[in-house]
Design a binder for these strands. Sequence first.
DNA 1: CTGAAAGCGCTTACAG
DNA 2: CTGAAAGCGCTTACAG
Lengths: 346, 346
Amino acid sequence: MNEGEALTGPIITIKDVAAMAGVSPATASRVLSGNPATSPEAMAKVMDAASRLGYHPNAQARALRSTRTNVIGLLVSDVRNPFFADLAHAAEQAALAKGLVTLLGNANESIEQQDRYLDTFISQRVAGVIAAPQGEGSPSLRAVLDRGISTVFVDRTVDGIDVPSVTINSDSGIRQAVEHLARQGHKRVGYIAGPESTSTGRERLRSFSQAAHDFGLSGDPALTYIGDFQPASGAAGARHLLALPQRPTALVAADSPMALGALSTLNREGIRIGSDMAVIAFDDLEWFRLLDTPLTVIAHDVKAVGRTAVGMLLDVIDGHRPESVVLPSELIVRASTITPPMEQVL
Amino acid sequence: MNEGEALTGPIITIKDVAAMAGVSPATASRVLSGNPATSPEAMAKVMDAASRLGYHPNAQARALRSTRTNVIGLLVSDVRNPFFADLAHAAEQAALAKGLVTLLGNANESIEQQDRYLDTFISQRVAGVIAAPQGEGSPSLRAVLDRGISTVFVDRTVDGIDVPSVTINSDSGIRQAVEHLARQGHKRVGYIAGPESTSTGRERLRSFSQAAHDFGLSGDPALTYIGDFQPASGAAGARHLLALPQRPTALVAADSPMALGALSTLNREGIRIGSDMAVIAFDDLEWFRLLDTPLTVIAHDVKAVGRTAVGMLLDVIDGHRPESVVLPSELIVRASTITPPMEQVL
DNA sequence: CTGAAAGCGCTTACAG
DNA sequence: CTGAAAGCGCTTACAG
């Protein structure tokens, strides 16, 4: 096609391997794909030829013929959110241990972008999909399901779509958080929520509102700010809460990127975390512990989420209908929610 | 194959679409792939049939036939490293704007895992590869290049492999960092380096050593600790430096995960950042600014790296040989390297 | 502008 | 255990 391409070596196909090994393409195929019906000699010759020629099977052709792939698609909501980066890492390692390669798609908290990736996964004929879904069942999500592609949801679910999932029970952690704040004497607690378009956004808000009611916190709707799980909205949420006529004394953020944004606003405004404003974040990031005032968090086991999702997907691929798994969350109390005995311990 | 699959709707092929539209598969193909040689009526009928049937082209078959794909592979060293998460995000957005879908592979700083992904990219017949390579030219990396797959390196390069790259000139930033520390009166500066197996690991160490020499810092080899770019090695490096008979007064970490590990060790040991130990990290993460003592960093433009790499890859795919791009880095001085006028500003 | 036909690289019943 | 042959779902010269 162009001069650069002219330098390219020829593509080695199974026919080349077969020819060099002196067998038929059928036999070469059997050896290469691990079919037991092959003689030791054929096996040796084919393997040798393949490695000498640097043969790389064409996955397209293979998948076209056999409709089986060792590739799974993992769709996360936002790679820059450490929760999803860790989840991707854990899932990938678990998949690799099972001989599966994971293709990662980043929806970037956008339904359109999610659908781009899901369409790509369909077109690539992946063996299965693990997805943290956006929205209420987009066209491409339906298409994945309609085609019978094995699917597992992680972190989030979609109402009315019955797919096995592994999620986090945020209710327990959030309840503990609210109870803890109530015990510390807080009445007005700001909540920076996730978007209504995600199950986690909705559930965490519901848990918070219910717990706030149960533990006698103010029900002032102005104390709730709906963000989008990304840092800028956390910053905006904190600004909103600080501008309230009756400023809250504590703040809970529904995920770590929004917590980051909120912290950065508090910092800029000179509000001291812990003493001026109690802060709790969902997700336990290592650096939350490194802050001058280490952050109280609602923690959970991300690695377990990833591992479990992969195990579950394998089950689905094998034709089973595994039960959904809900993993626990719990409050870890640190200095950001404890009124210090002194203003500053020197 | 199993009962679960029985529920699956039939796979819609281009023949189904053609039949419903009352045209030949060839015409349907032309419409669907945007070939201009189609009548408006055929176009309308085919598009209508395709959307009614929920047709998803089989990328395998398409690629098998036309050897063209709109999928590129992006291989990063470690998704959990925010630098690479941001890079992946930026590259992905840039690719999407050009109509390309990005498949993300995570080498996890392992050559074996890198090769797994590269093999997958080859087998998936991606249109191009953007890679932050591990090691010195692994077999799979050679295979990618031998096959003439358009490739661009990001962040790292491989000696002796002539591929266009977009990298960061860490030398300028590191020199500024060392000069800054020398001016503050530091003599013994610890350096937590990246692995020798990466070009960035080697270059940054060389820059540091050279600058340390030029600005009269101690050349004690015990002040250099070779890590692996991941948090645990940063923690180990900090422990090593603290255990030295002559403890350094400042510390530079060659990437942010190692900085995170080092900070966590300093914290645990009760070493105050800034006053007890000056700290500089490579990479500017948002949360570095949120620390009680905001961190001095060597910053660079990650988004530009991602965008540039995608543009360059497109150039390579088009048969050009773009020049490699080196983006600048610069020191941003914050409190972690400035001896405060008072021990604590209340 | 359209259709019939060949073929991309593999795998898999089907005979032997 | 092996080979010849068919076919997976597309695209693309080749005629018309």
